[in-house]
Amino acid sequence: MALPDLAKKPQRFTGGHRACAGCGFPITIKIILQAAENPVVVGCATGCMEVTSTIYPYTAWRCSFIHTAFENAAATVSGIEAAYRSLRRQGKIQQDIDFIAFGGDGGTYDIGLQSLSGAMERGHKLVYVCYNNQGYMNTGIQRSSATPRGANTTTTPAGTQLPGKPQHPKDLTAIMAAHDIPYAAQASMSHWNDLYRKAKKAFAVDGPAFLNVLSTCRLGWATAPEDTVDAAEGAVQCNVWPLYEVEQGKWKLTFKPKKPLPVADWMKQQGRFKHLFRADNSQLLESIQQQVDENWQRLLERCGE
């Protein structure tokens, strides 16, 4: 698909929403919704996406949309999908409809994990999209289990006692793949073609699909608004955020950086890692690089590379 052709399709997410200038998630939404061929029903967990796009009486969504609490986007959309299947069986609906649940990393990795796991295990035909900006950005930048090690957040403030978040983020995409769902993938808004193709696959499978999409938060990452796409690109180029998919249990790498950049190159762009470049934190920086390298090796093995 060429971009000018993609632009011919009417958009289902409009301007006039109140997300920050240079926000990443509207780009993620745009690419995913352009990939949907059928009418869509969207459920959205509490978070920036929901708050900024549906300030009453305004809504940026030109499709059915329901706001749910933080923890139950997957449960709500499961219910909608189950009701749809029943109505379809009764002959009351003929139309094919795509069901999407959106959640941030807070609503997906942490608070909504149980309902997400349940929805995947029950096998609802829905696409769960985690727009992952690596923290609770809507409430003022707190750490989540997706926040990278070393990042400065308001609950892991970098100072004399703590060099930012002490833990590595958990590998949620692998956890979702372990549910043996037909499709799970990791993508980035910076690589639109890869994300578009993965969204197409996610809509096409007969069962649950999970997409974990890196979406820059320029406020929480402390990057310049115009660098939103570059910041996400950097995470992919330094293997912090590898792009891969797990289709029917088969792992496949969908992008391999020609020459992976050092993690420090990506971190340098972002204010949240500023303290890591102090001399007393050099060991931590090395240890982060080591962990990223180990994870990358493990992924290569899983993908049979």
């Binding site: 000018p4 632009a7 301007g15 929403h17 997300a19 240079g22 926000c23 639109w192």
Partner: peptide
């Protein structure tokens, strides 16, 4: 050159494309 990267990466849907231009 009508590559549409601006259209794609605009978070505010501000770039206008008509008939692929």
């Amino acid at each position: 050159i009508n590559c549409h990267r601006c259209w794609l990466y605009c978070p505010d849907m501000s770039w206008i494309s008509e008939d692929g231009r």
